[in-house]
Design a protein around this nucleic acid. Sequence first.
DNA 1: CTGAAAGCGCTTACAG
DNA 2: CTGAAAGCGCTTACAG
Lengths: 338, 338
Amino acid sequence: MTSKDVAAAAGVSRSAVSFAFNDPAKIADSTRQRILAVAKELGYTPNPVARMLQQGRTRSLGVLLPQDLPQIMENPYYSQFFVGLGQVCHREGLTLLLTPPLRNSMLKAIPYAAVDGFVVCGLEVDRGEVAELRRRGIPFVLVDSDPPEGVPSVDVDDQAGAREVVQHLLDLGHRRIAVISFDPGPDKEAYGYRGPLARRMAGIREALAGAGLAMDDLPLIEVPCTREDGYHAAKNLMLLDEPPTALVTLSDILAVGAIDAMHDLGIDIPGQISITGFDDQPEAAWVRPRLTTVRQPIIAKGRVAGDFLISAIRGETQHPHQVLHTVLIIRESTGPIR
Amino acid sequence: MTSKDVAAAAGVSRSAVSFAFNDPAKIADSTRQRILAVAKELGYTPNPVARMLQQGRTRSLGVLLPQDLPQIMENPYYSQFFVGLGQVCHREGLTLLLTPPLRNSMLKAIPYAAVDGFVVCGLEVDRGEVAELRRRGIPFVLVDSDPPEGVPSVDVDDQAGAREVVQHLLDLGHRRIAVISFDPGPDKEAYGYRGPLARRMAGIREALAGAGLAMDDLPLIEVPCTREDGYHAAKNLMLLDEPPTALVTLSDILAVGAIDAMHDLGIDIPGQISITGFDDQPEAAWVRPRLTTVRQPIIAKGRVAGDFLISAIRGETQHPHQVLHTVLIIRESTGPIR
DNA sequence: CTGAAAGCGCTTACAG
DNA sequence: CTGAAAGCGCTTACAG
């Protein structure tokens, strides 16, 4: 069922059919009504892909994701990010295409996506994605990355957030601080820390330096970002000869696991150990004791990324780079050293 | 930058360029390498939309959603559903197009989406969506709806779930039971209860009947599905002359709000009142007291919907209709009538 | 193994 | 106000 069939049935040209749907001013209203009636009867509506090809736009925003869809969807971080991005889609009447890596490659996923532009998430190591998007002339915005010059990007001041939370522990008198980090991935060997993780590490280092401590003085465990891994990492740290009096985790999910571990070990929080998170996801306020953590404005991040992308799609040629602030949220899981 | 440019630069025909990308067997390997090198140098990759038009497939699954993106993304139900659907996308190497209503209409959103098929969520009142999808010949699966004959669909046995949770309260001796339901929307006037809500109401009615009670004997409040609304609804119910001894809520979110309200009123759960939820979302196990609720297998629902859609896209002409089971999860928020 | 041609279904100047 | 024609960028039988 094509516009040709409708044109034939209505006794008009294909242009007239197109005008009936897209540009009513160009044909007589009576003709338009007749065409629309015939179209309805025949069950015709314009083919969206053909229309996209012709118009050169898809009315869809892409999100280029660093992990497979199930992993992304399990992560409450992305739910919040998509709320912000969703606000922009809603305002602009656009759909959202979730584009996970294809055969383990973000790069390979790019050429298959029919979108007007991409929000690129968590691109810690650029394997040519930026060059590919540039070459294709697809507008894009980088989020949670190490943004190169001349590319719109949105980030959070992870460094200040990490610095402040560690400073908070130092102020409470803690010196035996351990760090539970999420896994930097296989690229650490080749590239060192990158993106938000690098900034958080830098913030920790900065605060420690102020107290005459170095990163190397601290136990550091790197694990996948799950509650279970946080649990085991925390348990292992407490088995050390000199167990820490404070645990800095780089994600609320890890922190919640660490809290579970202390419950099981019968260790009081914050009486015997202080624990901090990062992100301020909803469960940070649910867990007992309520979690001291670094809040980052995830929804705002998604919204700003969406706004930047819209403006890039419209051809505005600035390359805005916004850094959103974090806030230290002090709750019940931290206290003075006993 | 099109295949024509690459063909010219490489001194071959456009077919050769296409073969180099899609059908290596059809050209000499040396030619292929040359073409690919030229393409790389020129920054050419095939236009995805043109390819979709030609091949008649998009390698993308659509989800036709009943609400705007921000609302969907705030709802943990959909996060879980997308995990299941994401598993199928991952297995098949497909992207996921989130398609919210366009100008408040699910129907209007359909003709703009470039997808191979749709998972249609929560279509409680069919305003022509099913007819439209059929006419266009787009494969689809209905989820959480009142599925008509001859359409693949996935549902949950809401009726049994609701029946069992009410029976549980009756068994504990409760007779003064109140119901907090999520809003049936503006269509209730015209159509009565529909879809999962209708089934849950039927289940409640069924259990009550066994104890000689009728729905009309019970206070019923219908509110939007937020924690705040659950809070206020619960508070209002406790102001009745004969306040309930048990609160049946039709969503965990409402139940959590109701628990907050009891905390604020100084009413002990389950000593003075029992509260039940529906869905078994993660916070049901977090909240104190832990929530007695009806678990529905949301991830499995997403996965089955995806599988059915894949099989419909492949042209398998059965119309499977699967109903997944619920399980009553008894935790701490229900107890014998005092 | 390669090239010219048709066609996917649409939109939009352009001429009437 | 309408129609014939070109073109969006690709793929794929078909003939050589």
